[in-house]
Amino acid sequence: MAYVIPKENFSGKVLEMTLGAGDKAAVVGGGSALPFHSFEGEGSTRPLIALEIQDVPPSDWPDEVKKQYSSVSDDPAGWAKYCQNDLGAKAVALRLVGTHPDRENRSVEDAVGTVKAVLDAVDVPLIILGSNHVEKDSQVLVAAAEAASGKNCVIGKAQEANYKTIVAAALANNHKLIAMSELDINLAKQLNILIGQMGFSSDRVLTDPMCSALGYGLEYTYSVMERIRLAALAQNDTTMQPPIVGDVGMYVWKIKEVMAPETDLPEWGAIEERGIAWESITATSLMVAGVNLLIMRHPKAVEGVNKTLDELT
C-alpha cells in the first residue's frame, strides 16, 4: 500500500493584514496551515523582514553591525532611505531608543520630528517602536501615532502597563499595533483580550511574545510562538490569530557570541560571520515557529534568511 502523508486540517486561521500605504504596502499573516506545511494547506504569506534603524546613532551596537550603516546612521531619514533604496528593505522599523530617560532622553517633539522625516524619506511600511520605557512610551508613541496618521504604520509596543493609551492612539490614527508580553502565552492571550475589549479589532494586532537569541532562551520563544499558532489553528482561538512579531536584531546583537573578539576566542571563528550566522539562525528558527514579521539588523543576515525562504517556499 502506498504511503499516505498524514495531514492535519485546521478550522482556525491566521489573520491577514496590510501594513503601510501605497505601492509598497505589504501583507503579513493569512493562511490556515502551520508554517511551511504547504502539503497541508495554504500557510501564511512570506514573512516580512524589516530592517531596524534608530533615532540616535547606534552607539551600543557591536562594530560588525554598526559599520554597515556608518555613513548614514547619524541621520534617521538618510538611514531609512539607505535601507529601502540600497539594501532593498521591504519594511523599516524605527526604534525611538533615544527617548529613553536613561539614554539621550529625547523629547516627544524630537521623536515626532524624526518620525515625520523618516516617513517623508521612505514609502515602504514603517514600524514605529518606543524605547521600552513604559511611561515614556505612552507619551512618545501616542505623539508618533498622531504624526504618522493615515500611513497605516505599526505602532509598538503596547504592554500590560501602558496598553490603554497606545491602543487609543493606534485606534484614532488607523495604525496597526504590536502587543507585547513577556514570554508567557497566557499573558499574551490576556493582553489581546484586553485590547479587544477597547474596541480594537484583532485583525489590526500583531502579537510579540518577546524574542530571545539562540543560546539565550530561544527555545522558550519558539515554544510560546508554536503554542500561539496551534491555539489559532487547532483551537480556533480568535485572540491568538494575529500575526506574530520577532524582534530579533536587538536580542542577537548584544550577546557574547557576536561581540567576543577573535583575539580572545580564535576557536569561535571570524567575528563577522558569527554575528550574521547568529542573527539569521535565530530569525529562521522563529519563522519555523510561526513569525510573520521580523525586525533585523544586519543586511547579510537578512540576505541569508531570504535565501532560506526562497528555498522553502
Binding site: 502565552i185 497566557n186 499573558l187 492571550k189 490576556q190 483580550i193 484586553l194 475589549q197 503554542r227 491555539a231 483551537q235 482561538d237 485572540t239 491568538m240
Partner: peptide
C-alpha cells in the same frame, strides 16, 4: 485544556 487559559477567559 481545550481552550487556552487567560485571566479574562470568562469574557470571551
Amino acid at each position: 485544556n481545550k481552550t487556552l487559559y487567560a485571566h479574562s477567559y470568562l469574557e470571551m
